[in-house]
Design a protein around this nucleic acid. Structure first.
Lengths: 195, 195
DNA sequence: GCTTACCTACCTATTGGAAGGTAGATATAG
DNA sequence: CTATATCTACCTTCCAATAGGTAGGTAAGC
């Protein structure tokens, strides 16, 4: 065994994930992955039958990890605004790693060209996020920390959209502004002391 | 002559634009374009030397059209909020056409994998939008229609990000919520009567 | 002795792109 | 008015590279 950490299958997923975050589904090949991992292309097929298989599995892992992070936030913070700030940090951390996009943000853009199983995984991710955010905003409104007349569902959609969009605008516009700034600005606007 | 409208070069750009909006830069080929237009692949090369050429030209046209729309808004509306609402409608109209993404939103996501000339065009688009929005928000704040403590530049980044993101989240999440709803919700939150 | 992890070799389709040719319109010069 | 030249828009043919994926084999471990 070599000194590289993790099983080969894990490393394949790690590499594929990074490639998707930077180039998208159609922007990388099994050969790219193989080269980066240090094996041959057919060996990648040994671990993941098809490309759709690999990416669908990867998207599921991504969503599960996100789910864990959300659960961790719930236990670590009680204050609804602190929870939302921690949520923004999740996206900011991803983006800080050499401008990596959210996996499902990237895949969501390409949704029309994706295999069904992959597109399903992407939809699950957004559903999970929207549900968690809706609950968080409902808490924030009930505790009086957010005082907009807008429904919690709409606010959830707004924050998620702003964060996903900030990555794309920040990267495409070569701006220094990313999801951290955009997300926090929005939270300030929505919070009581925002004006 | 056939009944198809526009010159061949224009039709090539129209088709390529639609394909990019639905599948991204790596998601379409010269052959796809040729087939849709009704000519052979090398004839596409006759009009646009390379793929980078085609897409860069197309991005420039997209930005110019957007620029015209912004100018039209400026002359048609005086009220800063009405201008911002008209801006939101620009994105909503694009998205309403079978869920088409903003060309530069899509390309922005793939920015890391794009030829330099294309990436430059994308950056120009975002710069144009951010500049216009910053001025619009400055007006809105000076007239007291928007009362956040946030700077106009930050608000511009926020609205643009929210609109670009809403397209991706809406499509990827198979939601009925799109840029129209998200954009208008944000404007309500920012406006005086938003609470 | 079966399973796992990997390999070489190969296949077919498609990619972006080049080379070179043709039909028809237009322009120009004698 | 005609002959020559040029241009545009398209064509067929071709190419090397790359795509996703398969077949079949080897070597090690439980």
């Amino acid at each position: 065994m070599n000194t590289v950490i993790g099983s080969t299958a894990t490393r394949v997923m790690d590499v594929a994930e990074a490639l998707i975050q930077q180039r998208g589904y159609d922007g990388f090949s099994f050969d790219d992955v193989a080269r980066a991992v240090g094996i041959r292309k057919p060996s990648v097929h040994h671990h993941f039958r098809t490309k759709a298989d690999l990416v669908a599995t990867l998207a599921r892992r991504y969503t599960e990890r996100f789910e864990s992070s959300l659960a961790a936030i719930d236990t670590a913070r009680r204050d609804p605004m602190a929870r939302l700030e921690a949520y923004v940090l999740l996206f900011a951390t991803t983006y800080a790693k050499d401008g990596r996009l959210c996996v499902c943000g990237m895949l969501g853009a390409e949704a029309a060209a994706l295999p069904a199983q992959v597109a399903d995984g992407v939809a699950d991710f957004f559903r999970l996020n929207l549900d968690w955010l809706t609950a968080a905003f409902r808490d924030a409104q009930q505790s009086g920390r957010v005082t907009t007349t807008q429904g919690a569902e709409a606010l959830a959609q707004l924050l998620l959209s702003a964060l996903e969009g900030a990555m794309i605008v920040g990267r495409g516009g070569r701006s220094s502004v990313g999801p951290a700034a955009v997300g926090n600005h929005l939270l300030v606007c929505l919070s009581k002391q925002g004006r």
